[in-house]
Each structure stands twice: as structure tokens, then as C-alpha cells.
């Protein structure tokens, strides 16, 4: 009798917990893959396609599935690879391409014929203009993806590196100066 009671209690417990778990899995269902979002947040969102995927999100999905390497994103640079490696517990690999400084596209407005091809190519709608009207790039929105370069029939778009200016200048890491031996010697004498 005792055994039956024990089994009954265990069975009841299993049913209750099972129901609770089942409910929780529906109620608190996680939409989408959180890992993909985490990877996507590390990627620089230039949408340049240099990784071979049509945008950052597809590349993030491919990384999450473990189909591709984490070193295919040149705009993300080595820092991006490092962060992806940290996130995924994978090994850091050297970047598969040359790391470029940040750049933006600039349209030579005298040469532009107003064909709108670059407008269609821009993944972030950072080019304004209309058919047969001069086009120009909204510098603040340009991600420097270079996707507007190939479609231009008159080659009036060039890439320019964003140099250091007062707005984006950063304080440097304080470096401990290593001085020549003869300069250091008197100091030691003084201390002594």
C-alpha cells in the first residue's frame, strides 16, 4: 500500500511538474535565436557583403550554425574577431582580408550623371538624388561598404578614409616611457 502511495505521489509530482514545464515552454518561448542576435550585435552592420553573405544578419546566422569562420568580416577588424571568439569560445584567427581604416564614399558631383544605380545599390539608403539629378552621399549614414562603387557607370564615386578629427579623437593609452640607460642612471644615484 505504502509503495503504491509513493508511486502515486511521484506520478502526481511528475504530472504537475511536466505540466508546469510545458506551460513555461509555451509562455516564455524565446522568439528567434538569441545567439544570432548576440553575434549580429558584434558585427559592424556595414551590410557590405564582404563576408560573402547578403548582409550582417545572414552572416551571423551562418556563424551561429557553425558553417563559417568568424574571421570573414573586414570592417569588424581583428577586434571583431576577438569578440566573436570570446562569445563563441572559438579560436581567434587572423582576419581573412586586409583591415582597412574606416572610410566613407564621396561622389564627385561634377561627374555624376544621375543614373540612380548607386542609390539602388546602397544598403542603408545613404545616397540622395533622383534620375538625371546629381546624387550625393549623406556622410553620417555612410558605412563605407563600397557597394556603390561597381554599379557607377562613370566611376565618380571614390572612397575616402575618415581621418582623425577633434570630434573623434581619442586620448591615447598612457605609455610608460622607456628611457635610455644613461638618462636613468643619475636618477638612481639621486635616489641612493
Amino acid at each position: 500500500m505504502d509503495i503504491l502511495l509513493a508511486i502515486a505521489i511521484m506520478a502526481l509530482g511528475a504530472v504537475v511538474l511536466g505540466a508546469a514545464l510545458g506551460y513555461a515552454s509555451i509562455k516564455f518561448k524565446v522568439e528567434g535565436d538569441p545567439l544570432v542576435d548576440k553575434i549580429d550585435a558584434i558585427l559592424p552592420q556595414t551590410q557590405c557583403g564582404q563576408c560573402g553573405f547578403p548582409g550582417c544578419k545572414p552572416y551571423a546566422e551562418a556563424i551561429a550554425k557553425g558553417e563559417v569562420d568568424i574571421n570573414l568580416c573586414p570592417p569588424g577588424g581583428m577586434e571583431g574577431v576577438q569578440r566573436l571568439a570570446d562569445l563563441l569560445g572559438r579560436e581567434v584567427k587572423p582576419l581573412d582580408a586586409e583591415e582597412k581604416p574606416k572610410q566613407i564614399a564621396i561622389i564627385d558631383e561634377n561627374t555624376c550623371i544621375g543614373c540612380t544605380l548607386c542609390i539602388q545599390a546602397c544598403p542603408v539608403d545613404a545616397i540622395v538624388g533622383a534620375a538625371k539629378q546629381m546624387h550625393t552621399i549623406i556622410a553620417g549614414q555612410c558605412t563605407g561598404c563600397e557597394l556603390c562603387l561597381p554599379p557607377c557607370p562613370v566611376e565618380c564615386i571614390r572612397m575616402e578614409a575618415i581621418g582623425e578629427n577633434i570630434d573623434n579623437w581619442k586620448w591615447k593609452y598612457p605609455v610608460v616611457e622607456i628611457k635610455a640607460a644613461d638618462a636613468a642612471r643619475p636618477a638612481i644615484k639621486e635616489a641612493a
Binding site: P44, Q45, A126, Q141, T143
Partner: peptide, 9 residues
Amino acid sequence: AADEAKTRF
């Protein structure tokens, strides 16, 4: 900038 690029894309 990345977030903005993403929303625009």
C-alpha cells in the same frame, strides 16, 4: 552608428 545602419538596412 551600427544600430542606425542596421535599422536603415
